[in-house]
Simulated scan of single mutants.
Amino acid sequence: MTVLISVWGASPGVGKSTLCAGLVRWLADAGLQVDHFREEEILTRPQFTAVAESFKTTGAVDLATLIAATAEFVASVLASGDDVVIADALVPYIPTLLAMGHEEETIGAFMTDLTEVLAPVSPVMVFLDGNAEAALSRAARREEGQWLDWYVGKLAKYAVSPPVADVTSAMNYLQRERAVTLETIARNDWSLVVIERADELPQDEVLRAAQRSLRPWLEVLTQGSPTQG
Rank of each mutant, 00 (worst) to 15 (best):
W150S: 15
L174N: 01
P163I: 05
G15F: 03
A71Q: 06
G15S: 12
Y93Q: 05
T181E: 01
I67A: 11
E105A: 15
A156D: 07
F110S: 07
W190T: 00
G59H: 09
V126I: 12
R215W: 08
D113L: 07
E105K: 15
V3M: 07
F48L: 03
T70M: 04
K16N: 09
M1P: 00
V85T: 06
A10H: 08
A10Y: 04
F127Q: 10
A186R: 05
K154T: 04
T112G: 12
R178M: 05
K154V: 05
W217M: 10
V74N: 00
E143H: 13
A198R: 03
A30D: 11
R197M: 07
E177N: 14
G13I: 02
V24Y: 03
E196F: 06
E177S: 13
A170K: 02
V51I: 08
R38Y: 09
T49E: 14
V117Y: 04
P216E: 09
D62F: 02
L97T: 04
V7I: 15
W190E: 00
P162K: 14
D189I: 00
D88L: 00
A165W: 03
A170E: 02
L155W: 09
R197W: 07
R38K: 15
E40T: 10
E116T: 10
A69Q: 04
R215F: 10
A21F: 04
L66F: 02
L27G: 01
V167W: 07
V220R: 14
A75K: 09
Y93W: 14
P216R: 05
A89Q: 09
G59A: 12
P46M: 02
V167C: 10
L4C: 13
A198Y: 00
G224F: 13
L155I: 12
V180N: 01
L201C: 10
Y151W: 11
L136P: 00
P120H: 11
G13C: 12
R178E: 06
T222C: 06
E144Y: 10
D204K: 06
Y158D: 14
E133V: 06
L148E: 14
L207G: 06
A64E: 14
A52I: 05
Q175C: 12
V160A: 11
W147K: 04
P95L: 10
E133M: 10
A210G: 00
A52P: 00
E40L: 12
Q47T: 10
Q146P: 13
A170Q: 03
V61A: 11
T168W: 12
L201H: 12
G130V: 02
N188D: 08
V74I: 06
P202I: 01
A87K: 02
A109C: 09
F73G: 08
T106W: 03
P163G: 08
